[in-house]
Nucleic acid binder design. Structure first.
Lengths: 215, 215
DNA sequence: GACGCTAGACCGACCAGTCGGTATGCTTGA
DNA sequence: TCAAGCATACCGACTGGTCGGTCTAGCGTC
């Protein structure tokens, strides 16, 4: 817990000193490398099927290093979640707080969340596959954070319903669950080297959402 | 593989004999009990976090019984998938092959898949959480079956687009992925003892889908 | 007495996490 | 200026325990 601060220091501390590692990915500080490799492996094989040994081997360190920066394997997963949640909340706030009609703001936010999701597909895969492997307390805190995000989004929908620009006969809450179901499942079918860019999918998804809300 | 026939026999064989077990659920033949308990446990804790020992204990038998009816833990999971896929494909066909305008048939099929999903929420949770734990071959066959299901649904959408009753500027394929994302995620937020029935959610979801397809 | 079914002890593999230890470089004070 | 003292970063062997799956023996029913 308190230990986390230690790791953050290193991020700058390491860059400043004179060591000059060879490999490109080895430039990154150990903590970042562990997070990156864990993300990749968790997304590919799942949390439970990935051993700590595999993670540290992929990051080019040993267990000692991992347990220096993280409390447990669970803590590692939690950090991955925290990073995603922070990023998405930040972006949503930016779009929701912008100027303009609510329909435009919702469209922009919806497009953006799709783009961000396909840009971080591994995170998305981990999210809905491995969340239930977290310890109960961690699980609760992640869900609470997630709920706050959904509520922000729901308020946008509800605003449009109050203004009469969206149909109001379907609960805003459910519209959000409906839409985010689609977004979370991008990881199961979207391929970055397929025919569609994230932008295109985002626009289509946002169109479908806005159209479904037409009165 | 061939062994599976053995288990099916038992279903009737067991009911006939004179044993008189105490608990209600013990009336069911062993194979069914194993499948039922495995489904419940996998949905709650995930495939990897559920041990074979826990499954057989819940079903009131021992490992010997389980490995008599199933090849492996993986095979058990595969059977759960096969059961769901069979059921859903059957129902979709019934709705898709019915008489009437395509919009009505799609609406009915969409409502039904939601209702069926919330009626078997455990199956749904397992599906999108544990699919990637299957051995590669099993995984492939499950995906192929799933794809056939999606294609049947997609053809309904495409038919409506050809007829001009649905907007045609969004690929039918993507509409299906959009919709089924929402359906698969019911397991993460829907609660049977919540304020909404499966029928209500189904109707809302189908309304959203049909509305989003309005030209 | 053969066969379907089940029990449960057992095996080898593996895994998360621990711990004693080394290395590196920063800080402090004379 | 430099050396002593100390915190940080990391190593890797090891431990206690769990797991999936196997195997042999026994039970009941034709």
């Amino acid at each position: 817990m308190a230990r986390r601060a230690t790791g953050e220091h290193r991020v700058t501390g390491d860059r400043v000193n004179g060591e000059r590692p060879a490999g490109g990915s080895l430039e990154e500080p150990v903590r970042q490398r562990l997070l990156a490799e864990a993300t990749r492996l968790f997304a590919g094989r799942g949390f439970e099927s990935t051993s700590v040994q595999e993670i540290v081997a992929a990051a080019g360190v040993t267990k000692g290093a991992m347990y220096h920066y993280f409390d447990s394997k669970d803590d590692l997963l939690h950090e991955i979640y925290a990073r995603v949640l922070r990023l998405q909340m930040e972006r949503l706030n930016r779009f929701a707080d912008a100027e303009g009609p609510v329909a435009e703001r919702l469209h922009a936010a919806a497009t953006d969340v799709v783009v961000t999701t396909v840009d971080n597909l591994d995170d998305s895969k981990i999210f809905f596959r491995s969340m239930h492997q977290l310890t109960p307390e961690t699980y609760k805190s992640v869900r609470a954070e997630r709920r706050r995000y959904h509520e922000r989004f729901r308020d946008l929908v509800a605003e449009g319903q109050r203004d009469g620009v969206f149909r109001a006969d379907i609960p805003a809450e459910m519209v959000v669950d409906f839409f985010f179901g689609s977004v979370h499942h991008l990881g199961t079918w979207y391929h970055p080297d397929g025919p569609l860019t994230g932008q295109e999918v985002g626009r289509h998804f946002a169109d479908l959402l806005l159209n479904s809300l037409r009165p």
